[in-house]
Amino acid sequence: MTGKHRENYNRNYLQYVNSFDPPTKHFKNCYRAFMVGGFICCIGQFFRYMLEYLLGLSGDELAGTVSILLIFLGTLLTGLGVYDRIGRNAGAGSIVPITGFANSVASPAMEFKTEGLVYGLAAKMFTVAGPIIVYGVLAGAATGIVYYILGLFGAV
């Protein structure tokens, strides 16, 4: 079989396979993501109100404390083996909020603890979160540059 022929053959095969792939249920996933993600945000908002009323926090202090509480919860649920069960049925609803970030750091840390505290736990901790940080910072910087340029022209 020549290269060209092979390519065509493979393309046909992939088309055939895709023709009856079980479809990813986008609507269902979106709905679940909305509900679960929204619920996590509601919890965050609840913390916010509580801290505001009970401890009288405000501004950056308030936002920081809420984040810390959510990260703690995300990590705790990961450690208890609950978060992956939520995540399995949540679409992306449990990944996007800050609890998802906590989960993505805690889960490889737990997993690779068996290879030692330095080369296992610490080194592998950011295998999932690393890309998020890199591209998050990059996207932040890019947005900053755009914002600065627009500011020069008085657009913002």
Binding site: P23, K25, T78, G87, I95, N103, S107, M110
Partner: peptide, 12 residues
């Protein structure tokens, strides 16, 4: 992925 990571498995 790590076991405890909450990801949705694709239907395939």
């Amino acid at each position: 992925f790590p076991l405890e990571q909450g990801t949705t498995r694709p239907p395939q």
